[in-house]
């Protein structure tokens, strides 16, 4: 019994390391790769690695294969979330005794309630894990800016990848009853509305990607600009103080922290919620549920009779 408890504690420590080490690695990479420079720097993702694997095709494919810190950070976030999930779901009992099992059950219940409230009970089992994954990945990616590294969600490529994935899922759910019903979902209100429907369908991934990216990126840019402006202001106001005292940007204390609460924590969590919510609404709204159930019960009835 004692040995079992000790080995369980060892596994816990390993999983906690799996959660924390990727974040430390992200910070270390950021510190090692940031050039020492003064002044305001607003730029996109830092390029760690760049290669042109097919130099012969250079005329056709003119871009290099680049690995930026947005990609590296999003993989580190994924490893960290995996560690968190394994840590929360270790040693599950039928009657929960540990705090972490209560936390895990709370998360699962909340997400299932959200999915059943927005999409109906039909989708809960198939869709709740995906929604929870989207929520966790988006929220933790945005929160990465709290530890000072580049948030993967302030790169358009990351969010555009998620939006394309969601668009594929929406199309798959819409087309699950055959192409005839998929086309009818656009053309049921007449030809003029059909054109508008197609346009709004194509605009879905663009709007989802730009909404998320625009919120997180503009928050980061505004934070940097306000911090730089406060530094300039404090050197203007307090520059007459003697010696090193005049060099300390005293006015930078306070206001950037309040902005960070809004832009990093509130806005990041809200955008994760909205991204998951829109995913649920689009999929639930596009899915022809009655048709699907009618077909499947019709297909299942002869089997049951046979």
């Amino acid at each position: 019994m004692n040995e079992k408890a000790r080995s369980g504690r060892g596994a816990d420590i390993l999983l906690i390391l799996m959660m924390v080490l990727p974040l430390v690695a992200a910070m270390a990479l950021k510190i090692l790769n940031t050039p020492a420079s003064e002044g305001v720097v607003i730029e996109g993702a830092m390029v760690y690695f760049s290669a042109n694997p097919n130099a012969d095709l250079n005329a056709v494919i003119s871009t290099d294969l680049i690995i930026t810190d947005a990609q590296i950070n999003s993989w580190l976030v994924m490893i960290s979330i995996t560690g968190l999930c394994l840590f929360l779901t270790r040693d599950l009992r039928e009657k929960p005794v540990s705090a972490r099992q209560h936390v895990a059950e709370w998360i699962v219940e909340k997400v299932e309630g959200l999915v059943s409230g927005n999409m109906g009970d039909f989708h809960v089992n198939s869709f709740a894990p995906f929604v929870c994954a989207v929520l966790a990945l988006s929220a933790f990616s945005s929160l990465m800016s709290l530890i000072g590294v580049f948030a993967p969600t302030s790169d358009l490529s990351t969010v555009a990848g998620w939006a394309v994935l969601v668009f594929l899922i929406i199309t798959a759910y819409k087309a699950c009853c055959g192409p005839r019903i998929y086309v009818r979902s656009f053309t049921s209100d007449g030809p003029v509305v059909a054109v508008l429907n197609v346009i709004s369908e194509v605009a879905t991934p663009f709007s989802m990607a730009f909404r998320h990216y625009g919120n997180v990126m503009s928050g980061a840019v505004i934070s940097v600009l306000v911090a730089a402006a406060l530094k300039g202001l404090s050197s203007l106001v307090l520059g007459w103080l003697p010696g090193a005292l005049g060099q300390i940007p005293l006015l930078q204390v306070g206001l950037p922290a309040i902005l960070s609460i809004y832009f990093d924590i509130f806005s990041g969590a809200l955008q994760a919620y909205i991204f998951a919510m829109l995913t649920m609404l689009y999929v639930g709204g596009g899915f022809p549920e009655e048709e699907y159930i009618a077909r499947h019960s019709a297909a299942a009835a002869p089997k049951a009779a046979a």
């Binding site: 709007s207 730009f210 909404r211 990216y213 625009g214 919120n215 990126m217 503009s218 809200l270 955008q271 919620y273 909205i274 919510m277």
Partner: peptide, 16 residues
């Protein structure tokens, strides 16, 4: 809050 965040989108396009 949900509706405000969605209505904010057009402004964010302009900001981007």
């Amino acid at each position: 809050i949900m509706g405000c965040a969605i209505a904010e989108t057009t402004g964010l396009y302009a900001l981007v």
